[in-house]
Nucleic acid binder design. Structure first.
Lengths: 199, 199
DNA sequence: ACAGGGGCTGACCGATCGGTCAACTAGCGT
DNA sequence: ACGCTAGTTGACCGATCGGTCAGCCCCTGT
C-alpha cells in the first residue's frame, strides 16, 4: 500500500519516539511514564522503543544528551570573573538555551535529584554545579547562591509549568519574543553582581 | 517484652508514616516512591500504611492537606490592591511559610502538573493560581507573570533541590536565618511593583 | 476471666512494569 | 531468484506495583 494516511510519510521512528518520550517525561515525570504510553502515543509497539534505545534509561539518555552537550558548551563561554564583562550577553544566550531546550531543562530541574543515578542526568547536574560556581565564585554568600537558584529554577519552571498554572498554553511561539526579553531582564537583575544594592 | 529497643517509644504510627512519606514523595517523586519503601523506612508493614490511609493517594492527601490549608489561609491575608501597602510584610510571611512547609511546596511545585488529578493537589494549584492573580492583577503583563513564576518556583526550588546541587545539606536549621533574610530581599525585589525600574 | 476491638501483619491478588525473544516483513545488493 | 539485514511486532517473562483479606497481638471495659 502507498503510505498515504500515515501521519509522517517515512520519518525516522527514532526521532518520533524521542519527541514523544521527551514531552511525556518532562510533563508527566520519568517514573510516571511507561514505555507502553510512549509507544502508543507515537504509534509503534513497545518492543520497537526497546529495539531503538535498548532500555528506558537509554531512551532518557538519548532524549537529554544533546541538550546537556549544548549546556556544557554554553557554560564554557561564561565570561571570566576578572574582566568586568557585562553578563547580559551571557544571560541572553542562557535564556535562548532555555527556550530551545525547555522540556529538557524542566525535566532535569524538576526530577534531577531523583534521577541522579542516571549518567546523563548526573552529567547535567555537574554542568549546572559548574555554572553555579562560576556565577557565584568562591566567596559564595548564601544570598549569592539563593539568587542563582531562584534564577535558574524560576526561569525553567515558568517556561513550562508556570504557564499551565496561569492557564496559558504549552506550545512555543505564543509570546516567546516578549517573554524572552522580560526573562532576560529578570535574570540579569538577579545575577548581575554589580547592579545590586548590596544590603 | 518491654518496649526498650524501639526507636520511638509509642509514637503514633500515622505521624511517623506521614513524615517518611512526605520526604520520600518530595525527594524521590510520588510515582517513584512505593508504599513498600515508605513502610520499610518507617519500620512498618506495607499493609499498615494502607490501613491508616486507605490508599496511596489518601497518604498523599494526608501529607499535603495541612500545608494546603495553611497556604489558602495565607493567601487570604494578601493585602488589597487598592491600598498601597508595602508587600514586604506579606513576603516575609510567605517566606516563613516556605520554610515551614518546604517539602510540601517542593512536591507541589515540581510534580503538581503530573498529579493534577489528585484532589488535594488540584486544590493547591487553585490556591497558587489565586495568589498569582492577586499579585499580578488583571493587567497581567507577561513580565508580571514571569516575575511571579520565577519568584515562587525559584524560592521553592532553592529551599530543597538547590541545596543538593550546590552540595549543601537538606536539613533545616543550617543557615536558615540568613537564608530567610536573603530570600525575603529577593522575593520583595521580584514582586514589588513599585520599586521596579519599569524598563 | 473474658469478650471485643483497634493496631498491625503476612499471604495473596490482578495489573502493569521494563525487558527478552522468535518470527515476520520489506528493501537491497548480487 | 536468492539470501541478508534492519525495522517492527506480539507473545511471553519475572518482578514489582497498589490493594484486599483473614487473622494475630494486646489493651481495655466490664
Amino acid at each position: 500500500m502507498p503510505s498515504d494516511t500515515d501521519a509522517a510519510p517515512r520519518a525516522q521512528a527514532r526521532a518520533e519516539l524521542l519527541v514523544v518520550a521527551l514531552e511525556q517525561f518532562a510533563v508527566d515525570g520519568y517514573h510516571a511514564t511507561s514505555l507502553q504510553q510512549i509507544a502508543d502515543r507515537a504509534g509503534y509497539a513497545k518492543s520497537n522503543v526497546l529495539y531503538h534505545f535498548g532500555s528506558k534509561e537509554g531512551l532518557l539518555n538519548a532524549a537529554l544528551s544533546a541538550a546537556v552537550d549544548d549546556l556544557a558548551a554554553l557554560v564554557d563561554t561564561f565570561p571570566r570573573r576578572g574582566a568586568g564583562v557585562d553578563p547580559r550577553e551571557f544571560v541572553e544566550r542562557f535564556v535562548d538555551y532555555l527556550f530551545a531546550h525547555r522540556l529538557e531543562v524542566v525535566l532535569i530541574v524538576n526530577q534531577g535529584q531523583s534521577l541522579a543515578d542516571v549518567p546523563v542526568v548526573d552529567r547535567a547536574m555537574a554542568v549546572i554545579a559548574r555554572l553555579a560556581l562560576e556565577i557565584c565564585s568562591e566567596d559564595a554568600s548564601i544570598a549569592e547562591q539563593l539568587r542563582f537558584g531562584v534564577a535558574l529554577a524560576g526561569a525553567a519552571y515558568t517556561l513550562v509549568a508556570g504557564r499551565t498554572i496561569l492557564g496559558g498554553t504549552l506550545e512555543p511561539e505564543d509570546g516567546d519574543a516578549e517573554a524572552r526579553t522580560a526573562l532576560v531582564d529578570i535574570l540579569a537583575e538577579l545575577l548581575a553582581p554589580a547592579a545590586r544594592p548590596l544590603g
